[in-house]
Amino acid sequence: MGNLKIEKTLNEAGKRNVVVVDEDYNIVEEITLFLHYLEEKGHSENTIEGYSRDLKEYFTWLNEVGLKFYEVRKADMFSWLEYLKTKVGKTDKEKSAKTKNKYMATIASFYRYYEVIGGFVTENPLTYKDDSKNRHFLVQKVSRKDMGFNFFRVKEKKSVKGKRLTREQVEKLYQGLEMLQSDESLNARNQLLFRFLYETGCRISEALGLRIGDYEIQTKVGVIKVKEHDPLYHKDHNIKSLEREIPVSRDIVFAIEDYILYHRPDDGKHLTIFVNHETSPGQYMIRDTITKLFNKLSEQVGIKCTSHMLRHTHGTELTESGFDMRYVQDRLGHNDVKSTSKYQHLSLEAKTTAYESFMRQRRSAELN
């Protein structure tokens, strides 16, 4: 097969696809079938591209050790883990448990697909299943055969809840944007984007895909309309949830209109609200541009900040203010309330305020 690489194609319907090809541009069909299955299940283009990158590395290892994917057994996976450690990505430092598990989850899903369709795989080399027939003595009739588990999964350290920014940090970061650029219009865009993410909790893809007309001003509030546009300008504009309307302050809608009227370059082709100012003025923005902006801002101010941290902060502040989880779920566009539950942890500031209130009540009821 030679060296593998990822290429992007257009199908008959004009939709973008990713494929893994060898050096002669022969498509790796085993991967293509699996990626098509993911597409049929409704996975986003970014997710499918992530799967393709992982499988490209896995099939490169298969070529190196001279195995077909259906010939791999559990004992072979230790060789794959060594390859992952020494030849994939940055090899000068140990890969995190999260990175290893991501690759393993992708490969396990790939084998599960071929287990289901049949004809190739008789054993998933990454999962363990208990085939014991003597289970009559179990109180609960659920075994590892029923659920299975990834034999090679690595225990991940619990992450410190550091995604939430304090109000003071948000203000410093917002002010720090002015120090990044001397151009007034570019500063206006950057500050509006920062404020929009913080005040709406939108995903960066939803903000970048927002178009002129996707908002309105009502009597007391403004409304942001998160919706899918067809055709998309770029895959980074894909929304990951159902379309929804988000109530916002009238002030931020006025700020959007002010930016469009006085600062936004217009190339006559693109209708996204947030556009490029320096390279290709008026063209839609992509995720990589935003990542670079937030990296530069974090370095300038000395506070780590990403677009997702602003979303996380917004969700946490809503829960701290006592909003019902169903409201937070709808506002953030979560399909599952389990995703919303991660915003339930309280900041030290919120816990301190609650404890001070408790102490005041306790003093009023002290025994004499």
Results as ranks from 00 to 15, higher is better:
T279I: 14
F274G: 02
Y262K: 14
V275A: 13
A188I: 06
L193T: 04
L210C: 05
L193E: 09
V253C: 11
K235G: 13
G268C: 11
R195D: 09
D251F: 11
K240G: 01
G268P: 07
P231T: 02
K225N: 13
L261P: 01
S280Y: 10
L192T: 01
P247D: 01
I239R: 00
H263Y: 13
V275R: 05
C202T: 01
F254A: 12
K225H: 14
V275D: 11
C202K: 00
Y233E: 15
H277W: 08
V221W: 03
S205G: 15
I273E: 02
Q218W: 09
I224Y: 01
I212F: 05
Y262M: 07
I273G: 01
N238L: 14
K220A: 12
T219V: 14
D230V: 11
L232Q: 12
S249M: 00
K235A: 14
L197Q: 09
T200P: 03
H270S: 08
S249R: 01
L210I: 13
Q218G: 14
I256K: 10
I260A: 14
E245Y: 03
D236F: 09
K235M: 11
I212C: 12
E206K: 03
E245P: 00
N238A: 15
P247W: 07
E245M: 13
S249P: 02
S280F: 14
I246R: 01
T279Y: 15
R244W: 03
S205P: 00
R189C: 09
Q191P: 00
Q218K: 15
K235L: 10
R189A: 11
Y233L: 05
F194H: 09
V221H: 13
N238I: 15
I273C: 05
P247G: 09
F194P: 02
R250H: 10
C202G: 04
Q191F: 08
H229V: 11
V253Y: 04
I239C: 02
R189T: 05
G209S: 00
H277E: 09
E243L: 06
H277M: 11
G201K: 03
F254L: 14
V253G: 06
E206P: 10
D267K: 07
L232M: 15
V248S: 08
Y233D: 13
N276E: 03
R203V: 02
E257Q: 14
F254Y: 15
I260H: 05
D214M: 08
P265F: 10
V253H: 04
I260G: 07
E243G: 13
E278K: 10
A255L: 11
A207G: 09
P281L: 02
A207C: 15
R244N: 06
P247R: 05
T272M: 11
E206Y: 01
N276Q: 12
K225F: 07
S280W: 03
Y198G: 11
S280I: 06
R203L: 11
I252Y: 01
K220P: 04
Y198P: 06
G209H: 10
E206M: 09
G268Q: 07
D251V: 12
I246G: 00
P231Q: 06
I273N: 07
V248P: 01
V226F: 08
T279K: 15
C202L: 15
V248A: 00
E278C: 06
I256C: 08
V223E: 02
E243S: 15
P281I: 04
H263S: 15
S205D: 04
T272R: 01
Q218R: 14
